[in-house]
């Protein structure tokens, strides 16, 4: 049986008074795109560094592609590509030379198939191939860092904030690249981000890390189920409208302006709400279906008090 790409069991990292990662257990299956979400300082980078054997856990177990990382088992590294925190490169070396260094250290062949030329083409780095890394823009430096992570066609990609520094076109490009790697080549992707809306378009599973603890895990397809929705309505006489709605079995709540309805029946058939109000003599002046966006859902999950208001999803 093939081992999962990543298995983390009761993993913790403590520095004197600070607990950076606290009793985290998670599992990433092969071919999955798993996004670890968290605010800055949530413990994402510490967890990723433990995955890569750069930080020794205080407690718990980490297996990457079946290799027991904390014990010093390096068997997985030939099949893992990674990018941790800020992109970096040897400034006096060209893009091609930087990639050649990685090729050598990864013991990839230099003849026949040219992995350096191939990855330069795939990451659209050809115009900069012979430029020194110190002259690259932040976006192209990030591209070079991704090229270093991808040069050996890894089975597992571990990426810490991989779209940092990229412009919107670059973000879309990297998203497409990662999706293609996962779907066409079966590459497992484990990435961290603080942008739920961004990773929700890419990830198949999302874990939310807060203060070092994994506070939630969701299949990306099912994130909608957890997002709050309600109807916001305004009438000329809110008190009369509330009485009409209550008489028909709804549960309106007062809002700073108008009323809010979160009954499943109201959300499923908002036109019925409008009809009830019209027939009850309190016709709606406005009726909106509002839906919590992904960022708000994320913030509500990690910090309930900081969650912003819901945003408008459509008029009924």
């Amino acid at each position: 049986m093939t081992a999962p790409a990543i298995e983390i069991a009761r993993l913790s990292k403590r520095y004197r008074d600070l607990t950076a990662v606290d009793d985290v257990t998670l599992r990433v299956e092969r071919g999955q795109i798993y996004a670890l979400l968290g605010l800055n300082g949530a413990g994402k980078t510490t967890l990723i560094r433990m995955l890569l054997g750069m930080i020794a856990p205080t407690a718990g177990a980490v297996r990457v592609l079946g290799a027991d990382v904390p014990s010093g088992d390096r068997a997985a590294w030939a099949k893992v590509g990674y990018l941790v925190e800020a992109a970096a490169a040897y400034p006096e070396l060209t893009v091609r030379e930087n990639l050649d260094v990685v090729r050598r250290l990864r013991r990839l062949p230099g003849t026949g198939v040219d992995p350096v030329g191939d990855i330069i083409d795939r990451l659209a780095l050809a115009p900069y191939a012979d430029r020194r890394a110190r002259t690259l823009s932040l976006g192209n430096l990030q591209r070079l860092a991704l090229a270093k992570a991808l040069i050996h066609a890894p089975a597992l990609l571990i990426l810490d904030e991989p779209v940092n520094g990229l412009d919107p076109a670059g973000v879309a490009e990297i998203r497409a690249l990662l999706a293609s790697l996962a779907h066409r080549h079966g590459t497992t992707v484990f990435l961290s981000s603080h942008l739920l809306a961004e990773v929700a378009r890419l990830a198949t599973r999302v874990g939310i890390l807060h203060h070092g603890r994994l506070v939630g895990e969701h299949d990306a397809d099912h994130l909608d189920r957890h997002r709050r929705r309600h109807l916001r309505l305004a009438t000329r006489d809110d008190d009369a409208a509330r009485a009409v709605l209550r008489a028909h079995g709804y549960h309106p709540e007062p809002a700073p302006t108008g009323l809010l309805l979160a009954d499943p029946r109201a959300l499923a058939e908002p036109e019925q709400v409008a009809a009830v109000l019209v027939h009850g003599g309190a016709p709606p002046a406005e009726l909106h279906l509002e839906e919590e966006d992904l960022e708000a859902f994320f913030l509500r999950t990690v910090a309930p008090d900081a969650a912003p208001e819901l945003t408008e999803a459509g008029d009924a």
């Binding site: 054997g53 390096r74 893992v80 941790v84 970096a88 990685v102 250290l105």
Partner: peptide, 18 residues
Amino acid sequence: SDRTAIDLLALPTSRTAV
């Protein structure tokens, strides 16, 4: 200083070899 050390830590080439 160049923040490249991290690229040397999880490779088929061991840290001792580096």
